[in-house]
Nucleic acid binder design. Structure first.
Lengths: 235, 235
DNA sequence: GGAACAATTTGCGCTGGCGCAAACGCTCCA
DNA sequence: TGGAGCGTTTGCGCCAGCGCAAATTGTTCC
């Protein structure tokens, strides 16, 4: 890690949760923070674990996934730089409702329940930021429910890819590349389908040149075509 | 409306959002509140409307439903006595993300965006309550995503009925009656299926005596049998 | 470089559940 | 009393997408 990373990495002002906080308040936040560096494919916490902390990601990508008693799995969300995660449990039953696993090398920061409560108490803005963030996620989740309930697989996959590209895509000469590794299984678990169906749908799109998979990274070369499918459900 | 209703109806302490507030704080809350009495099947707000307010229900039942650009509909949630609704929009884009319609005669109370902000600012507890509530709803929504993604219709319907019964059921001699009117279409829209499939599944259950529909109200006579289906996916 | 492993593709058969359309039953109102 | 309207049930045909299994390709680690 370079010097730049250290200073940039510890710049908590870039975290959505601490947006618009005064420098003095950020100092308090920093004083209570616990930083951690993690390698790829590391579990940060497991579904059902107690003694929860509030997490945020400074660098890297994390996959949040949930599995039912029958073993079936869904990807709840991908977390990227600046986003918080595992925080809702602090205010509900004190157990993580899902697993968190790093997809890349990561720098994570976390606060204990008591410390976050204290910070929120002293800095009202944090609570408001929190509300805004999970309010947005609640809307996302409800849109997802609607999609799952009403659209067929092809269209759901198209939507999912576009959403990922919009949120975590980097434009380059080939198209828009989604910044974290995405296996077919991940795409299936996002869209509520099977690995097989996801493959069956994506392969023709690759053949048509609408997207490329390279080094587990997905690049949308023809977002317009994919948009078509997302909108009309047809080519 | 009787005198009892009026005094009880205005007891804002029974609203989840104002739980554990001091009497003085509740007075402030009451001073800014706008009460409204509504007849059955009334629209409270429409998806997309601006100039949002924060709502809570003192008496009655409200259906929150969302429809996509293609007309497909899902029921997001049923609101009953004490619950807040339409509040998340205040913190996101300022537009209601769904429709709200009364299913019974209702007493509703609401606050303007500015007034709620002021109340939250003066009484930190309100913000914390808010976080707890939408945190819980976020978890609910994510569980629903998982169900939709992994379980088949029969099981989803079983789960939905049990959840409704648990949250809004009254025990009586026949079994547990869900307190608000539920048409087949509603059940379908909760579970992400069609009216037809819902009917095809529920009719055998009625024939088996596991439940009864009377006056648009559903009574679970054999929750144990329905639990079986919810758990195992089989009888 | 090659063996062991992980991820992906693909063929095939089957079925859950959708879509359509028609019939049935209840309630309200003229 | 009858008919208009809403909600529900049910028959029938069809197909999207799952499950299984095998082949293929890509990746990692000696």
């Amino acid at each position: 890690m370079s010097i730049v990373d250290v200073s940039l990495g510890r710049n908590l002002a870039s975290l959505e949760l601490f947006d618009a906080l005064s420098p003095a308040a950020l100092d308090e936040v920093r004083a209570l923070a616990r930083f951690k560096h993690l390698t790829r494919n590391t579990r940060i916490f497991n579904q059902g674990d107690g003694s929860v902390r509030a997490h945020a990601l400074i660098e890297g990508c994390v996959r949040i996934s949930q599995s039912g008693s029958d073993g079936a799995q869904v990807v709840v969300r991908f977390i990227t730089r600046g986003e918080m995660f595992g925080t809702v449990a602090l205010f509900t039953d004190g157990r993580y409702p899902a697993d968190a696993e790093t997809l890349t090398e990561c720098t994570e920061v976390s606060w204990s329940e008591a410390d976050l409560a204290q910070l929120m108490d002293r800095h009202h803005r944090i609570a408001l930021n929190f509300i805004r963030i999970i309010g947005k996620r609640l809307q996302d989740a409800q849109n997802r429910v609607r999609e799952l309930a009403t659209q067929r697989v092809e269209r759901r996959i198209a939507h999912a890819l576009l959403r990922l590209a919009r949120r975590s895509g980097h434009r380059n000469s080939e198209g828009i590349t989604i910044e974290f590794p995405l296996r077919r299984k991940d795409i299936a678990d996002i869209c509520g389908t099977t690995l097989h169906s996801a493959s069956r749908i994506l392969t023709p799109w690759e053949k048509a040149g609408w997207l490329v998979t390279r080094d587990q990274r997905l690049t949308l070369c023809r977002p317009d075509e994919i948009e078509q499918i997302a909108e009309n459900g047809e080519t």
